[in-house]
C-alpha cells in the first residue's frame, strides 16, 4: 500500500514499491491517458510531471513518487500552460494517430512552464526524448512557439 498524490488528489494504491508509476496510473487508477511505448525511458510516451518536471513514468517506481506531486495528461486542461498547449496543438493540427501526444504535451508544457521563450534548440532539447512515429515534429515546434506567444500575450 502506498499513498501518492495524483493531479492534486491523494490516492491509496495497492502496488509493490517497485511498480512503475505508469502501471499504477493505468492499471490501478484506470487513468489510461498516459501511454506505454517502450518501458525503458526511451520513447517518452509515458511522460508525466513529478513536481512539475517531466519524468518517464515507465521507469519511475511508485516508491520514488511518494511525497511528490504527480500530474498527468488528464489534468492538463486545468492549468494555464496545459490549456495553452492543447489549444495551439489543435490550431496547428499536431496529432496524427495521437498515441504519443499525451507525452508530447507533458514535455512541451513542462518546457513552457519554466521557459516562456524557448528557442528552436531549447525545443529540440526538451522534445528529443519524445518519439513520434507519425512525424509530427514540425507541427509540434510550431505549436510550442504559438503556445509560448499566447502565454506571453496573456502575461
Amino acid at each position: 500500500m502506498a499513498t501518492i498524490n495524483v493531479n492534486g488528489r491523494s490516492m491509496k494504491v495497492d502496488a509493490s514499491p517497485d511498480t512503475p508509476v505508469l502501471w499504477v496510473l493505468r492499471d490501478e487508477l484506470g487513468m489510461t491517458g498516459t501511454k506505454f511505448g517502450c518501458g525503458m525511458a526511451l520513447c517518452g510516451a509515458c511522460t508525466v510531471h513529478l513536481d512539475g518536471a517531466p519524468v518517464r513514468s515507465c521507469s519511475l517506481p511508485v516508491s520514488a513518487a511518494v511525497g511528490h506531486r504527480i500530474t498527468t495528461i488528464e489534468a492538463m486542461s486545468g492549468t494555464p500552460v496545459g490549456k495553452a498547449v492543447q489549444t495551439s496543438w489543435v490550431a496547428n493540427d499536431v496529432p496524427q494517430c495521437g498515441y504519443c501526444q499525451s507525452g508530447q504535451i507533458m514535455s512541451a508544457s513542462a518546457l513552457l512552464a519554466k521557459n516562456r521563450k524557448p528557442s528552436d534548440a531549447d525545443i529540440d532539447q526538451a522534445m528529443s526524448g519524445n518519439i513520434c512515429r507519425c512525424g509530427t515534429y514540425n507541427q509540434i515546434r510550431a505549436a510550442i512557439k504559438q503556445a509560448a506567444a499566447s502565454l506571453n500575450g496573456r502575461a
Binding site: R26, M31, T32, G33, T34, K35, F36, T72, I73, E74, M76, S77, Q86, W89, V90, A91, D93, V94, P95, G98, Y99, Q101, S102, I105
Partner: peptide, 18 residues
Amino acid sequence: IRLEDARFLTGQGRYVGD
C-alpha cells in the same frame, strides 16, 4: 481543424491497450 483531436490531447483516446 481536425475534429478528432480533442480526445487525443486530453488522454481520452481509446486504444486497445486502454
